[in-house]
Amino acid sequence: MLGSTVFFGLMAVTIRLASESIDTYEVAFFRNLFGLLALLPLLRGRMLASLRTTQLPRYFLRSAIGVASMLCGFWAIGNLPLAQAVSLSYSTPLFVTIAAVIFLHEQVRARRWAAVAIGFIGVLVIVQPGSTQFSLGSLVALAASVLSAVVAIQIKQLSRIDTADTIVLWTYLFWVPISLLPALAVWEWPQGMAWLWVIATGVMGTGGQLLWTRALKLGDVSALTPISFMQLPIVAFAGWLLFDEAISRWTVLGAGIIFAANAYIAHREAQLARRAATSAPVEAVKPGE
């Protein structure tokens, strides 16, 4: 999980570096293109099996929403202070809880709703609506989180049918052409170091996703969630060092509130999952099995 966090933090830095010379729409396309190229060697021997699915229309919808979320998120990273853009991305689990109630009809009790409400207080602390610090760009970052939450629900639904390899592969196969369309409207070939940054963005993104998936398979979500928060000091330090960005105390305070809410939600979900596993009926084992 720590490796995944470092990869995603470095990806945010390379997105900012690339967006200084080309449009963020292009950065998103190259992130997907080079991410796919980095993924294919890892799936050798499993490629044909990973392509088997009966859910192509759902993958297209999931990928289209995912690209919209990516474009909003990349724009936020390219135009907002890095620490603020990343802090607002941590609001995604709050929206996931709401989306799970709407789309999956999950039951959420009072304590988790209270955690969601506290998390949104953290969002307000960062965004500061009504103050001179308020920026419409922060709403773009929040839009990325809302769309990302919808994608998370779709992945949960798809994972009931297809393997993780299938989900990742078809996502990338749709991401590349879908993200190419908006990129063509602002197309300008990268020059010099920009090529390094867009290639690094794709590799870092794929590496982060693979490590994150592996971490969730090996460990408890409630234990891993605090580690993912290390992304904030990484990008805050990079923003200060590379882009001369001051670290706002309101961003730090709001991010801390969102983190506390997310940590409680993850802990609560892990508790409920353990209880469900403990209370599940044990199937009788037949003789000879």
Rank of each mutant, 00 (worst) to 15 (best):
A260M: 12
T53H: 01
T97C: 04
N32P: 06
L10C: 13
Q157M: 15
V101H: 02
V96P: 02
Y90Q: 09
W175S: 06
F237A: 15
R58G: 02
N262K: 10
G45I: 05
L272T: 09
F34S: 04
I199P: 04
T132R: 14
V252S: 11
M204L: 15
L124K: 06
V27I: 04
R52Q: 15
G254W: 10
G3W: 14
E245G: 05
V285G: 12
A276P: 02
W189N: 11
A114C: 04
V203G: 03
Y25W: 14
Q133P: 04
R58D: 04
W170E: 10
L37P: 02
R31P: 00
A223I: 15
S63T: 10
L36M: 12
G66P: 05
L124W: 07
L17V: 14
V176T: 11
L136I: 11
V168D: 00
A200Y: 06
T92I: 04
M47A: 13
L2K: 01
I118T: 06
G192S: 11
V6N: 00
R274G: 09
G45L: 08
R160A: 15
W113N: 12
A115F: 01
L17I: 12
T225I: 12
P190I: 12
G35P: 01
A194Y: 00
A164T: 15
L36T: 10
M1N: 07
A270G: 14
F60E: 02
G137N: 08
L136F: 15
A83T: 03
E188W: 10
V146E: 00
F174Y: 07
L136W: 15
G239F: 07
Q55R: 15
L36C: 09
A99C: 14
A200Q: 10
A255N: 09
T206E: 07
V67A: 02
L42S: 13
K156P: 04
G66S: 10
R58F: 07
R109K: 14
A12V: 10
F34M: 06
Q133G: 08
K286C: 09
V67G: 00
L211F: 14
G219N: 08
A141Q: 02
W175H: 08
Q133V: 12
G3H: 07
V282Q: 14
V151Q: 01
R268T: 04
T166N: 09
G219M: 03
I167C: 01
E106L: 05
I153Y: 05
L39G: 00
G45R: 09
L2Q: 07
L36G: 07
V125F: 06
A266L: 03
I257W: 01
I126Y: 05
G219Y: 06
I153E: 02
M204D: 03
R31I: 02
A49T: 08
M193Q: 14
F174C: 04
T5W: 00
I155S: 07
A238F: 07
L37I: 14
F120R: 00
G239L: 08
V146H: 01
V101N: 05
T54S: 13
T53P: 00
T171M: 13
A110Y: 06
L33M: 14
L224M: 15
A200S: 14
